[in-house]
Amino acid sequence: MVENRPVLTILRHLVLGLGVVIVLFPVWVAFVASTHPQAALMSGAAPLLPGDRLVENYSRLLASGMSQAGGTPVGLMLLNSFIMALLIATGKIAVSLVSAFAIVYFRFPFRMVAFWIIFLTLMLPVEVRILPTFEVIADLGMLNSYAGLTIPLVASATATFLFRQFYLTIPDELAEAARMDGAGPMRFFRDILLPLSRTNIAAIFVIMFLFGWNQYLWPLIVTTDESYTTIVMGIYRMVNVSDEQPQWHLVMATAMLALLPPVVVILVMQRLFVKGLVETEK
């Protein structure tokens, strides 16, 4: 502490408190709306205090969805989102761990070319090449499948880059010792590199789980079958019901369910999350 200025300290808490209010307010209003009957959200300003329909709204939504939006149960959407997020996160980590290993621990022709090809994927977000990518998926017969939902998103420049940076910090003596003891490259990878990478794997898992959970455009275009609806895209269908006002109490309950799992992940694994975030971008 350089000096103690009580006025400044109060100002700090005031600004931070205001920031927290701004951050939490939309979520609070959504939560409140999700606990009211539809009638409370037809006219006048939306309520600020919770109502009594919490259990009713949520259980109805989880079991049978919203009839105007196709009636896909939100429970199923949650399951789909969970499967998708889990597959994408695991896939990205598996694929990047081995490719970073290949790039760092071997000398082979076209090594830098491979590195640059992987890095290029950073430059081509799906929104940018949406139509041709859709054609590829359609030609491969991967529409309406978990494979189509996840495999194209498994390539990861960020994760590869992070693992590469991490491997570079591992002392050469370890590889040397392993080689002297007669361990082959895969043995070294499994018994030495993997255990050392545990924290990094966990950190990147958090980031990639959120990435997978929050996918929107991709599931929207590669699935038409409602049994593959994920929750983030499901909200879109609920807000955009034709010819009528959306049923706000159900839309907001869905929004709460969509943001709850990732928020819990971030809160529980905060330290890992911050580490993963700050280090992936570094």
Binding site: L16, G19, V20, V23, V27, A258, L259, F273
Partner: peptide, 12 residues
């Protein structure tokens, strides 16, 4: 508390 919005999908 301030970190929370990161978890929320842009669409949400």
């Amino acid at each position: 508390l301030l970190v929370m919005p990161y978890a929320v999908a842009p669409a949400v």
